[in-house]
Simulated assay, not measured.
Amino acid sequence: MNIKQSNNILPNLHPIAREEHGENYWFNGCAGYLMECLGEKDFDYWFFAGLTGDNFTQIYSKDYFRGNSALDYLISEKNKHEIVELIFSNCGYASTFVPLKQILSNREMYVQMVMSYIDKGVPVILNDYGKNPHGRFSWGVLVGYADFGKTLLYTGADASEPDSISLEDLLPKNYAEEDEYCHGWVFVGEKLEEKELAKIYRNRILSLPDLFAIENEKFVLGANAFRTWADKIDSGFFEQVQAVNFDNWALHTVYVCCLATNSGGCKGFLEQALELNPDMDFIGEIIDIYTETGQYWNNDYGTDLEAIGGGFNITLEALQNKENRPKIVSKLHDFAICMDEVVSLINKFKTANQRRNYDI
Rank of each mutant, 00 (worst) to 15 (best):
S166L: 06
A213K: 13
V188W: 03
A146W: 00
E161N: 08
E196Y: 01
A225E: 15
W139T: 07
Y201C: 04
N224P: 04
D163F: 14
S138D: 04
F148K: 12
F187D: 03
V141L: 13
N203S: 14
I165M: 07
E180S: 14
V186C: 07
L142G: 00
D179N: 15
G144C: 09
D179G: 10
L211M: 10
D169C: 12
E180N: 13
L208A: 06
G156L: 09
R204C: 12
E180F: 05
Y181Q: 09
L208T: 03
V188C: 01
A146N: 13
E196S: 10
E177S: 14
D169S: 10
H183N: 13
L221H: 07
S138H: 10
L171R: 05
D158T: 06
L192V: 09
L221G: 12
Y181G: 10
N224S: 13
R136K: 11
I214T: 10
I214Y: 09
K199Q: 10
E190D: 14
N132C: 13
E193V: 04
D169Y: 10
H183T: 11
A176V: 12
E193C: 04
V186A: 03
N174I: 07
L167Y: 05
G156D: 03
T151Y: 05
K150Y: 01
I214S: 04
L153V: 01
V143T: 15
V220L: 11
E194P: 00
N216C: 09
G149W: 05
A213C: 09
L206E: 07
E217G: 14
W139M: 08
L221A: 11
V220G: 10
P172V: 02
K150G: 08
A198C: 09
F219V: 12
L152H: 07
N174E: 15
G222W: 03
G149A: 06
K199V: 13
L167I: 14
A225F: 09
K199M: 11
I200Y: 03
A159Q: 15
